[in-house]
Design a protein around this nucleic acid. Structure first.
Lengths: 209, 209
DNA sequence: AAAAATTTTAATCAAATGATTAAATATTTT
DNA sequence: AAAATATTTAATCATTTGATTAAAATTTTT
């Protein structure tokens, strides 16, 4: 009573289901996960999924939007900070995203495969184009191109390269690890190295000075 | 009779099924494709799938191994050509792979997601580590490191960057296209540009001279 | 052409799976 | 504490889906 709003349990059933759904959906994708997997992961009765969320699709929808919005939203904030330079933005993105993906390694593949399965559904709701076009990043990029600080006029190449350098190794993780027999810890060290290297690489690729 | 070995039909039923299976498996992955999808795509009776291939899993297995072996095999040949320099290898990989993926745009995501679903199964059969370690590429790379032509000692960074620059834009294609409202043709032009740019980028990233 | 072998089809099965229901249990309100 | 409300459970349904079967059609062999 005194703690008023909080429930007895530290996590409510609804939260448990969402957490379990995230775990399973991230790992297996929508079609490959069975509602029973989620129930089991949560340690709950199957019927509760349909009691709290109306259907598997609805539950997935919620997880998907949250995940995707979080992922896009955090880049948006970084790209729109007018107190950081282009170079600093690259450093921040490399640093934050590598940490983020190490903590949630399934997310990149999850997002990419679910967009493949349903490209329109999500992309229409997330106005990526507007976010990008109106961003401080784009302004800074165009200025730098004009001042000939950057040699590549197309910001898409810049972003594809940056995100490719950050994200691709995680997507290809099993191959990367298999190609040199790495343990998880060694793989993570490699990725930590990249936090410092990626900004340098991007610099030498694009910056004329 | 005279044309001896060839059948009346230009494509046998078995081939039709395999072609249809490729199309559907590539687009949707193993779990999300129903055997009925494949039958429909092939314009054939469902029971034929089990007549020619024993099961969905067996059919998938065949497609998967062929695809993966083809993909890895072609890099293997390029990496082991002792008549080409490191720089030439980069040029060839960028050129060939971008053309290949434009022709078969679903393959990268297909391979990546299926490895995620079953990392051991395939990677154990494809000896990536051996292929890489025994390659001419690795020798050339180590020599270049010793001669201080290359600044980065770890070939994994080199390969991750190269393949990331080539493959990532295709994996993220819906996002890339959405981010600037590109038509497929414009996206392809972007990728064609990258054939020339990637070798230059890799050079400026890694080569000291 | 008849017989044998192969290929294809329609119908059906069995298991998996998303969803529902009605009853049981727990919690909150009165 | 009793009544009302909310949550949880076990059992079950209906659909989907991979697989099988027996018969029909086609092709090959004799």
């Amino acid at each position: 009573m005194s703690v008023s709003e909080s429930k007895k349990k530290d996590t409510t059933t609804e939260e448990k289901i969402k957490a379990a759904a995230k775990t399973v959906f991230y790992k297996k994708g929508f079609t490959a996960t069975r509602t029973r997997d989620i129930a089991e992961e949560a340690g709950l009765n199957l019927a509760l999924l349909n009691y709290y969320f109306r259907s598997k699709a609805k539950l997935f929808e919620i997880i998907m939007v949250e995940t995707f919005a979080g992922f896009v939203g955090s880049v948006k904030i970084i790209l729109n900070d007018d107190k950081t330079s282009l170079q600093q933005k690259v450093e921040i993105i490399a640093d934050r995203y590598i940490d983020f993906i190490i903590a949630e390694p399934e997310i990149p593949t999850f997002i990419l495969t679910e967009i493949r399965n349903n490209p329109d559904g999500l992309l229409k709701r997330l106005p990526i184009r507007e976010i990008l076009n109106d961003s401080v990043f784009i302004k800074q990029f165009q200025e730098s191109v004009q001042k000939k600080i950057i040699s590549e006029p197309n910001p898409l190449h810049f972003l594809m390269n940056l995100l490719g350098l950050v994200i691709f190794p995680f997507i290809a993780k099993p191959i990367v690890m298999g190609s040199r027999n790495l343990k998880t810890e060694e793989f993570h060290l490699l990725m930590q190295e990249r936090k410092k290297k990626i900004p340098i690489w991007i610099n030498t690729m694009f910056m004329t000075v």
